[in-house]
Design a protein around this nucleic acid. Structure first.
Length: 281
DNA sequence: ACGAGAACCTGTTTGC
DNA sequence: TGCAAACAGGTTCTCG
């Protein structure tokens, strides 16, 4: 999916189109995504004004003038398409929820694999909601630092790779940016999470923040199914050092080419990890 | 309680 | 060429 940088890019694209706008038409094309959609979703969105759009981890949170919050998660293949001329733009196969604003623009939630989901709930449940309550710190926030990450990893008997994918440890990283951050921090993805303490934790925090900042500045990464809200392509995928580069030379060392050297791929808890075995310890 | 793997879905790419 | 297997950004559930 869209990881944190892609979701932040979508949020920034939606802001000028949706904030302050009223929803004059709401259509739901199927009863469920990853989970059943709330039965009253359309009724609670119809004629509401969107006051503010924020992001928490990989979630978009749209605050309504009814004091409800619309939560959107893009899953693996979710996209949000902005349609300037909706009456002359046919729906696509996997358009599932369609919002039209009082300015005549449509926002269409399109998700091929339907791993995405939506919910709507009262704003006072923001900290207790099932999808938000257990989340760890924002990696770009003030509370995420070397000591706090070290504390979160202490006692964890899994790999640092698997631990960073756990949204309770830090919220918003996914497979791509974990691989990139571990590479930049020169830490092996196989390293036991609980051994990442002190300077190693400091290095990892700095790498995570730097990778995310650079990715956001580039407008995120465009993957097979993902396009920015505007329809433009993010271009951070050209900056990947290791992700998807199995067999290529490591950009920062001399261990060129396959098979023994260069960037390797391994599978950890069912997901591909890309790394340089020489630089990452 | 923790960690690993399966499940959820569709589409594309890879390999025999 | 054709078909089956592998693989893809995430989260949640089950099982040992």
């Amino acid at each position: 999916m869209p990881e944190l940088p892609e979701v932040e890019t979508v949020r920034r694209g939606l802001q000028p189109v949706l904030e302050g706008r009223r929803l004059v038409q709401v259509r739901q094309l199927r009863p469920d995504l990853r989970f059943p959609l709330p039965l009253d979703l359309v009724a609670r969105l119809q004629d509401r004004r969107i006051d503010r759009i924020e992001r928490r981890a990989k979630y978009l949170l749209m605050h309504l003038d009814s004091d409800d919050v619309l939560l959107v998660h893009l899953g693996m293949s979710g996209r949000i398409l902005l349609i300037e001329d909706p009456d002359r733009t046919p729906l696509l196969t996997h358009d599932h929820v369609v919002l039209r604003t009082d300015e005549g623009v449509e926002v269409r939630f399109n998700d091929t694999r339907r791993f995405g989901f939506m919910d709507i709930f009262p704003a006072d449940e923001l900290t207790t909601h099932r999808h938000l309550a257990g989340l760890g710190p924002e990696p770009l926030g003030n509370t995420f630092n070397g000591p706090s990450l070290a504390a979160a990893l202490k006692g964890r008997n899994t790999s640092v790779k698997a631990a960073l994918l756990d949204q309770k440890v830090v919220a918003g990283l996914g497979n791509i940016y974990v691989c990139e951050a571990l590479y930049q921090a020169r830490l092996s993805p196989r390293r036991l999470a609980r051994t990442v303490q002190g300077q190693r934790a400091e290095r990892l925090v700095a790498a995570i923040r730097d990778v995310l900042h650079r990715a956001i500045a580039a407008g995120g990464s465009s993957l097979r199914d993902y396009v920015q809200t505007s329809g433009e392509l993010g271009y951070f995928q050209h900056s990947w050092a290791v992700y998807g580069r199995e067999g290529e030379a490591c950009p920062d060392c001399i261990c060129a080419g396959p098979p023994a050297n260069g960037i390797r791929r391994l599978v950890q808890s069912g997901r591909s990890t890309f790394y340089c075995a020489r630089l990452q310890r």
